[in-house]
């Protein structure tokens, strides 16, 4: 019985949250990795793009709520999501036209583009703040739980509670759908194939008649969609705060690099590696330990690392990968 309780506690506090968080990171890392492989720079504005997209989604959510439109048990934000994606993609395309295009034309060094993305980050940060402010916003509505603690107890009779929040299920299902769609697009459609060709060898792709402007446009649209979805899922699951999204930049970059930057499968793998390490190392294992080891009452929380240091986990994994396997777990590109 204790073993089952331990498993339930583990699922409740580690497996489910880490899977949801990993899916959010993976979507973020996919956006970073896509920009990286097509436009060839690390986009520091990605965290703020996520914040901007989520901000738009929240505004549309409020609009729909004021009209009395809802999705019943599902959060209204899902209905607002497509509108958020359209606005964000439009903003990214506008940014590309006004800012990035020039640097592509003069073939600026990647590090200059990184610096430019810092400027874009400032502007997007300001836009998000203008739109929605700096405060913490919870915009989750609809059914809160798929399985609540009480239902779980009635169902199984176990003393250890297990809850499955609807945002967690939505995150995982949405992320799965998005990933399947993205891989279908990259591997099966003509545009997707031309993007992969462009990423592998730009000159060769140009020679074979691929239109670079089209590739770049599609890349920004997909990036906007990925960023908005990742941001909205994160905001639904936790809450929205512009600065938190900026701070997500580190685990997202870590996920992309750990998986192998430029490799979409790697980005997903990296997202889960980072999330499981982060949640696993900052979880207080006392409960699980008392179930598993009889007659032992630990003094502390048996927490390896305080949650304040969760960034240290992504950073350490990042450093280890840089030292031992700079191309990432799945071979990414290293220019």
């Amino acid at each position: 019985m204790d073993v089952i309780n331990a498993l339930v506690a583990l699922t409740n506090y580690v497996l489910i949250p880490a899977t949801a968080y990993g899916a959010q990171l993976a979507l973020g890392a996919l956006g970073v990795t896509l920009v990286y492989s097509i436009l060839r720079f690390s986009n520091f504005a990605h965290g703020d793009t996520m914040a901007f997209g989520t901000g738009i989604v929240i505004l549309f959510t409020w609009l729909f709520q004021s009209w009395g439109i809802s999705l019943g048990p599902l959060p209204t934000a899902l209905l607002a999501l497509p509108f958020g994606i359209i606005v964000t993609a439009a903003l990214l395309l506008g940014t590309d036209r006004v800012v990035y295009k020039f640097y592509r034309k003069v073939r600026a060094a990647p590090v200059i583009l990184v610096m430019v993305s810092v400027g874009v980050m400032f502007v997007m940060n300001a836009l998000t703040r203008f739109l929605i402010g700096v405060d913490q916003i919870t915009f989750d509505d609809g059914e809160r739980f798929v399985i609540s603690a009480r239902q779980w107890r009635d169902m199984t009779g176990l003393s250890e509670p297990l809850t499955l929040r609807s945002t967690q299920v939505i995150t995982i299902v949405t992320a799965l759908l998005v990933m399947v769609a993205l891989f279908w697009f990259l591997n099966r459609t003509r545009t997707g194939k031309s993007m992969r060709a462009f990423s592998d060898n730009e000159d060769l792709a140009l020679l074979s008649g691929i239109n670079p402007d089209r590739v770049v446009t599609v890349t920004w649209i997909i990036t906007g969609a990925l960023a908005t979805i990742a941001g909205t899922l994160y905001g639904l699951d936790k809450s929205f705060k512009a600065f938190t999204y900026f701070q997500l930049l580190l685990p997202i970059f870590a996920a992309a690099i750990v998986g192998g930057i430029g490799s979409p499968v790697g980005a997903i793998l990296g997202g889960f590696v980072i999330s499981f390490s982060e949640v696993g190392l900052t979880y207080a294992w006392k409960k699980v330990a008392t179930y598993l080891i009889p007659h032992w009452e630990p003094d502390g929380l048996v927490q390896l690392l305080s949650t304040d240091y969760k960034f240290a986990v992504s950073f350490t994994i990042l450093i280890l990968v840089l030292i031992f396997k700079p191309t990432g777990l799945l071979k990414g590109k290293i220019v």
Binding site: S42, V114, L250, I257, L318
Partner: peptide
């Protein structure tokens, strides 16, 4: 390593 890895590592530290 790549020039922008330093940027990401310093962001983390």
């Amino acid at each position: 390593l790549r020039s922008d890895y330093l940027a990401i590592a310093t962001l983390g530290i």
